[in-house]
Amino acid sequence: MQEQIERIIVYVQTVFEESGSHGFDHTLRVTRLCEGLGEDEGADMRVVLPAALLHDIGRPLEEKQGIAHEKAGAVIAEEFLRSIGYDKTLIPKITHAIRTHRYRSENRPGTLEAMVLSDADKLDAMGAIGIARTFMQAGERNRTMTDATDHIHEKLLKLKGMMYTRGARGMAEKRHTVLNKYLQAFEAELSH
């Protein structure tokens, strides 16, 4: 499996040539979170690791063509995993995790592995890293600092209550505190 994971990493790196709020560094952080959460929860890492590495593989299509990245990503991931001879019985579980990882997805995770990926992706949107990513994304879209803090209020503060796994709930609690402290400081400075 390690050789196939290496091939997946190389493939994902070629897709995310540029850094950004959803770049390769985000993928690596989500994968590390999945490793810890997945092992703690007893998830099948043969599903979790490829799903984590490939979870945003459809982002470039979403940005260019408006196709939901979780749906496009599941199709791309399936084709790629088949091309490298990945275990055929695991591919539907991997694509399910990819299809259901997104905050706004109409589909909910139906397996432990999908829950781990969903939690890890949400955790990377919280805390200090989440704040940095939010401002990075605002810059990428030519938005203001106020737009970024609106995003924190409208989305990021809701994530704490959306965790599936025990370990993620504990991490989310800490990251949620960071979000609140940041907003208090930002809003205090803005008002003076």
Rank of each mutant, 00 (worst) to 15 (best):
E140M: 12
V178S: 00
T146P: 00
L123Y: 07
R141W: 12
K158I: 08
G20E: 05
A74F: 08
M145Q: 05
T165Y: 03
M163L: 11
R46Q: 10
T111N: 06
R169W: 03
G85I: 04
L33D: 05
H101F: 12
A172S: 12
A172C: 13
R46G: 09
L90T: 12
T27P: 01
R46K: 11
T144G: 00
Y11E: 00
M115D: 10
H151I: 06
D150N: 13
H176W: 03
G110W: 11
G127T: 10
R46C: 04
T89D: 11
A120V: 11
K174C: 03
C34F: 14
E187H: 04
A52F: 14
Q184L: 11
L54A: 07
I57F: 08
K160F: 03
I98P: 00
G130L: 01
D87T: 15
V12Y: 07
K174H: 07
P92H: 10
K64W: 03
D44G: 09
A138M: 08
N142L: 12
L28T: 13
E79R: 11
P92M: 13
G66L: 09
R29I: 08
R104Y: 15
M45S: 09
A132G: 08
D121P: 04
V15R: 02
R104G: 12
S19R: 10
A148W: 00
D121W: 04
E78A: 15
M126L: 14
K181G: 09
R175M: 14
L183E: 03
T27N: 02
I91Q: 00
D40Y: 13
H96D: 15
E106M: 12
I8A: 09
R104I: 13
E41C: 08
A72C: 08
M1H: 00
I152W: 00
I91Y: 04
G36Q: 02
A51L: 05
T95V: 14
L81M: 06
A43L: 10
A138G: 05
G58D: 05
D25K: 09
R99L: 14
K181T: 11
E79Y: 07
L157R: 01
P109D: 14
Y164P: 06
L157E: 02
E39H: 09
E79G: 08
L159T: 05
E39I: 15
R29M: 07
T177K: 01
F16C: 05
R7A: 07
P109R: 13
E35K: 13
Q184A: 13
H22K: 01
N180Q: 14
I76F: 11
H26V: 03
I94Q: 02
E173G: 03
E173M: 03
L28P: 06
L33Y: 15
A51K: 02
K181A: 14
E6Q: 13
S191G: 10
K158T: 11
F16T: 06
E173W: 03
M163C: 08
M171T: 00
H192G: 13
S21L: 06
R175K: 15
E17K: 05
Y86G: 00
L157W: 02
Q2V: 06
L49I: 15
M126T: 11
R141H: 13
T27I: 14
A43V: 12
V15S: 01
R104Q: 14
R32G: 06
K71V: 07
A138I: 08
A172E: 04
H101R: 02
E106P: 04
A132E: 15
T89P: 00
R166K: 10
D87E: 12
